[in-house]
């Protein structure tokens, strides 16, 4: 039995330490906001935070996450009021929505480390998160909006 801290809650997990973290989150803990995309760290749909970094949970083994702090889209903010979430809703960013939790988790790290990103900063930082619907222009717009909200103290 392994102890895993997810969204500030401790879970006892009966799983092999080599099991992908994504499997644990979705299949054992029921946190299905994080998606399976490619399974080989190429698309970003499975992005969650491990100790604040936007890791690919499809290739990260459970054993690496034990002892750390995992944050999924369900735990990004207490009331779905992270500036990015507010901006995402305001600008209706998602189309099919499948990649969007990964997009948000990646964007959250960008905004934390670069509170005023340029278009180029955003385009480069988000290049690892693919969107088959092509919502990139709205993603970029929403990150700018979230940066302003963050500056104004809106959201978390």
């Amino acid at each position: 039995m392994l102890t895993l801290l997810v969204n500030q809650q401790s879970h006892q997990v009966d799983a092999d330490p080599d099991m992908p973290l994504l499997w644990v989150l979705r299949d054992l803990l029921g946190l299905i906001g994080t998606k399976y995309g490619c399974g080989v760290a190429q698309c970003g749909a499975c992005t969650v935070h491990l100790n604040g970094e936007a890791i690919r949970s499809c290739v990260t083994k459970l054993g690496r996450a034990v002892g750390g702090q995992v944050t999924t889209i369900e735990g990004l903010s207490p009331n779905n009021d992270h500036p990015l979430q507010l901006a995402w809703i305001e600008l209706s960013v998602p189309q099919c929505g499948y990649c969007q939790s990964g997009q948000l988790m990646a964007a959250a790290v960008l905004l934390r480390e670069n509170p005023h990103p340029t278009d180029q900063d955003i385009d480069k930082a988000m290049s690892g998160n693919l969107c088959r619907c092509g919502t990139y222009p709205r993603i970029r717009q929403a990150i700018h909006r979230a940066a302003r909200l963050q500056q104004e103290g809106g959201g978390v």
Binding site: A41, R56, G128
Partner: peptide, 9 residues
């Protein structure tokens, strides 16, 4: 950098 640090993948 940002969401693309080496050890993320």
């Amino acid at each position: 950098l940002y969401a693309e640090k080496c050890s993320n993948c």
